[in-house]
Design a protein around this nucleic acid. Sequence first.
DNA 1: ATCTTGTGCTAAAAGGATTTATTTAATACT
DNA 2: AGTATTAAATAAATCCTTTTAGCACAAGAT
Lengths: 334, 334
Amino acid sequence: MKKRILISDIAKALGISVTTVSFILNDKAKEKRISEALTNRVLAYVQEVGYKPNELAKSLRTGKTKIIALIIEDISNPFFANIARLIETKAYAQGYRIIYCSTDNRLDKTQELIELFYDRQVDGFIITPTVGLAPTIQRLKDHAVPLVLFDRFLADVQTNFVVADNFTGANEATTHLFEQGFERVGFVSLRSEQSQMMDRLTGYSTAVEKQAKERYTLEVATDSWEQDIQDKLADFIKEHRIDALLFATNYLAISGLKAAKAQRFKMPAMIAYDDHTLFEMYEPSISVVSQPVEEIADKLISILLNQMQGKSKSLREVVLPCQLKIRESSRFIS
Amino acid sequence: MKKRILISDIAKALGISVTTVSFILNDKAKEKRISEALTNRVLAYVQEVGYKPNELAKSLRTGKTKIIALIIEDISNPFFANIARLIETKAYAQGYRIIYCSTDNRLDKTQELIELFYDRQVDGFIITPTVGLAPTIQRLKDHAVPLVLFDRFLADVQTNFVVADNFTGANEATTHLFEQGFERVGFVSLRSEQSQMMDRLTGYSTAVEKQAKERYTLEVATDSWEQDIQDKLADFIKEHRIDALLFATNYLAISGLKAAKAQRFKMPAMIAYDDHTLFEMYEPSISVVSQPVEEIADKLISILLNQMQGKSKSLREVVLPCQLKIRESSRFIS
DNA sequence: ATCTTGTGCTAAAAGGATTTATTTAATACT
DNA sequence: AGTATTAAATAAATCCTTTTAGCACAAGAT
């Protein structure tokens, strides 16, 4: 268990000053006019003894931590886990590490997490905001902290964000169901004012109106029990004699499938929002509106890096198109 | 964008020394015999101005970061994502944050990550080790870094670990298939020397021998293409006229299902290792050997916390029982 | 001979906390 | 009265870097 080697050890060993070593290690040798001979000697020695600077001390001095905070609804949801994975890879390639936490969409927890990571001086934030988070986000903005929201945005504060075109996604899905010949198309979503949920609802409603059909919506409380959701869903379908359904999230759709299985009723035609291995493999395979996860992750990172490196101060509001993947579950069977 | 308030600001405002404030804030008022009156005055003022210490400076001085590194095969795999979520929650409750990275089971990347996080002075490590990682782990041990492995362990170095009883899990699953009346039970696994894969293979082999039946194994290279895996699987099943299969990982099992779907052959009876939403909902539902994720996460955190808080230096090697969840896919249909 | 300019390097401050060692004042004890 | 003890607080060192400001010397300009 030998002691960590310090920059001062290097300096002492070579009989030069700490400053010089630091300059050389931070690629400022040229700029600071350190001779090439010495530069090479230092580099060689550093290599030889395997010196690595103490990142904490470095961060303390520079104010940069090379850490990005990922504050996300739930890392165990495949949609978020996949994005997390992509973000991680891209950040890593640029020398950034990810520190993350799940919020469960709870405002208090989210606020606390942001505060906490802010105190830890992370270099930037990627956040799926909860309703009511605007003041907290505004504060980050006031402190000029690089940040970008995703999956949803906040109307009350202007920030960078990357979201999918949820209106069009839901609209096209609904229209597709009507075009298939279904008449009583329902919409199941979360009781939430999150922008993505609102947009999906509006997308559905607009499509229904255009077809001059009836609207049937079911809003599930975010903190409901699984069993409760299943019961409500079954009732909803039976009561309104729904013949096709659009689910606003993948887990609601899964609850729907579970309900049908447990209570032995036939699931109407359906489309889910956000793809999932299950939907691809299910019998019948489930049609979905899928978000371009790769592009989302790409945009998130590139916007954030730009902000962090001060290359661009301009606001970036990115809306990416969704893709309607038509599979078997939305087919009309007369 | 006002300036951060420092501990020295507090001291100045109250006309006392920085030392005193620090003692009070670190619950050492009693021990250091700071008068109760002053203690309260300081606490009140700190509360009032909302002072929070700079965590970097704190960490630099104390050597503690309150950060745990989670170095995991792949955060987008539901099995790992679920465990990550549980670990996160438990760590959070104890004031620890998680910094994570996915390794893809690549040795070089894993080594680099460990080195990196070590330099960042994380307080502890939770790692799914790759083959060949023993020297790196040994080095961490030499430096007395708290760590615990999971999902698999390394034979060449003694460390804390938490794994499932993979031998018994695979053994029982295989035996169950024979008991159902299947004759030609195959085993599909990864070409890997990871302990959990070896144990599952041994579990299968032992069960086969006990029944005096034939062994049929297929080992897939870890870096194979999806299409390649599917082709190999289809060939394997046909060539050996397999009537039941045990899959060593959930994603191999999913590849199997995809192959059957794409190439339109009937999937033999099967059991998968590690549960997945898909398996629960699939038609027929897929029997699985499921690992006790909650308990695994519990043990991991409690062992790590114990180590970090110096409560226990003893080695903890935890092996938790798996649960065979019999569903439809392993039923014999004559 | 003096002044600039440029080269190559360094001493010391700064970043913001914790902790060790010490001081001061007050009280208790012969 | 003089000493020992204790309570209450603090100055200064420490953690390990980066960065600012500046020194010493040589070469060229006036």
